[in-house]
Design a protein around this nucleic acid. Structure first.
Lengths: 333, 333
DNA sequence: TCGTAAACTGAAATCGTTAACAATTCTATT
DNA sequence: AATAGAATTGTTAACGATTTCAGTTTACGA
């Protein structure tokens, strides 16, 4: 393996000069720099990052942490996040992927190993990890889950408004009897989406019927069970908002099983717009949650944090978008 | 940050002794080791990996490379791979995730930065990368795509037999007219699956009707188009094998659009068993491809390669499994 | 032509660890 | 009690880069 000293020897300068030339120091004369760069290229020089890291105390690796990669994290979620991040991140940064639940030894999480950390958070169980990272002084951006702490950079989707817009749309289609299948209790996203749901009903002076609030936990199975119960009601709703697409798919399966026509009898609205949402039968009307954009924006913030550690933390919102497909029927008034 | 020298000072020994004690060298007396370990723990010592790497020439990072993370890689694929790998990999290895199409500078791929590399390969376009890695002498395991080169460790699923078993099953259900929607031309997996399909038909002395061989490219859309064409045939097949689940979902959509009942008129078989396969309507009968197992096994091989670089490369096969659900009808004979 | 400031280059220390070799302390045998 | 040999521990030099501080050129005005 070739080092700066080898280059120095060939170029007839000191290795210090080589280091400076290759790192764009303004102290080096242009002709010297050009010569050295040429030689380095010819010799196929690649810097030793361990040595670099040792002295600069930068690791050139960014850690991406999901709550879990074993369970609960939908696949498209993970992929979209990685996509967004690698769009922004410089090629000679390494991106490592981990589940927080797989980190048994917080000792490994230190500034020396990570220049920065992105947490794609889904649950407040991540807080212990998040605060460890913060305590260690590692530049940090938390994505996806809205934090209460204004001291931490946070990028989230505007779930509440997204849901409100979706329900508004269904109201315009003539629906009046709305049910909701709620997300996992205790999750910020669950309450945000529920709020958006209620915002719309209240704005349209529609009643909030407690029978129409069904519990769920974001799993397909819970969507199925909740929908099955809703169908058994004496006066079932005509439209059901499912707090994520997985539950919407479960709900759709329940409708099939109970011979309830979608959208003839029951209109369905999901949340997330996962890849398969457009390929259900009928295709699912849903609220697109822009994970890729969130990840991109979060990465930008992190990069800025690396360059200017004094950047003030903020809470940034990315807009959701209603995707109208075929699961919401137009009702005669 | 605290170093072995700090520990040495407290323990009243040399830093070399500390290094040895903490790395399990047999040269150290038990009481000394115990004392040092205790002090290290008390002082919350964590080794500096850059320094370690610099002298040992090991990076403690394993690179996972997909053909692309932008396109063509199904999400569940990526997740299952990461899962499998992290099951096996020691916690203080870093796992980095990249798309080969995102690597513009092969110079960054050297032994110094990666202790080992796993390539989750989908196309022979990855070969340039694979051979670069091999040339650099980095321990390498290629997953998922069957290689011709016996000099490279390779773990793949037994696609051919898996498909044969699935078609055998459909034959037992009374089907005689089989079509196939093929995978992306040029991909090893496409031809393997096609072979399995033909193996079964030949074994059962069923005719190979050229009208029943439809082109596809693994995308949902191509599955839709191919199925639509098949339905227009004068004498359509009763069973269609789709070379992956995505195309099967496309095909199912085409059947809906053309009012062809699944499985009443058309039986469908997929390949992969993606998460949503069980939630289509009706639920998709498919061949499960054990990506997680492949990744686990591949990682084990890589770990072995790290420890014993002279391990002979082999080609390992992991068995697929038929998952019977509801898209294959039983026919009266 | 000379002096001085500006521009550039170099020597040596440093980062935290491991490793080769040297030195010391035990242990057991004579 | 002396001593060989084994068992421990220590000294010092790497590893490959950056950085501080000192040294050497160059350019320009007097």
């Amino acid at each position: 393996m070739i080092t700066i000293k080898d280059i120095a020897r060939v170029a007839g300068v000191s290795h210090t000069t080589v280091s400076r030339a290759l790192n764009g120091s303004p102290l080096i004369k242009k002709v010297t720099r050009d010569k050295i760069e040429k030689i380095a290229a010819e010799m196929n020089y690649v810097p030793n990052y361990s040595a670099k890291s040792l002295v600069t105390k930068r690791s050139f690796t960014i850690g991406l942490f999901f709550s879990s990669i074993e369970q609960g994290t939908s696949a498209s979620f993970l992929v979209d996040a990685i996509k967004g991040i690698s769009h922004i991140l410089d090629e000679n940064f390494n991106l490592t992927v981990n589940g927080i639940d797989g980190v048994h030894n917080f000792g490994n999480i230190q500034p020396q190993r990570f220049d920065g950390i992105l947490v794609m958070s889904q649950s407040d169980e991540d807080n212990a990890f998040i605060y460890h990272v913060k305590k260690m002084g590692i530049p940090l951006v938390v994505l996806n889950r809205q934090l209460e702490d204004p001291g931490i950079m946070n990028v989230v989707a505007n779930d509440r408004e997204g849901v409100k817009a979706a329900i508004d749309y269904a109201v315009r289609q003539g629906h009046q009897k709305f049910a909701i299948i709620e997300g996992k209790p205790g999750f910020k996203s669950s309450s945000e989406r529920k709020q958006g749901f209620m915002d719309s009903l209240i704005a349209h002076r529609l009643p909030l019927n407690s029978d129409y609030f069904a519990a769920g936990d974001y799993s397909i199975e819970s969507g199925y069970a909740a929908m099955a119960a809703l169908l058994l009601l004496e006066d079932p709703p005509t439209a059901v908002f499912c707090s994520n697409d997985d539950m919407a798919i479960g709900a759709m399966n329940a409708c099939y099983a109970h011979k309830a026509d979608v959208p003839g009898q029951i209109s369905l609205i999901g949340f997330d717009d996962i890849m398969f949402a457009r390929y259900t039968n009928p295709a699912l009307t849903t609220v697109r949650k822009p994970i890729t954009e969130i990840s991109e924006l979060g990465t930008k913030m992190l990069v800025q944090l690396l360059q200017q550690p004094e950047t003030k933390p903020q809470q940034l919102f990315v807009n959701t978008a209603l995707v109208t497909r075929q699961t919401v029927a137009g009702l005669q008034k």
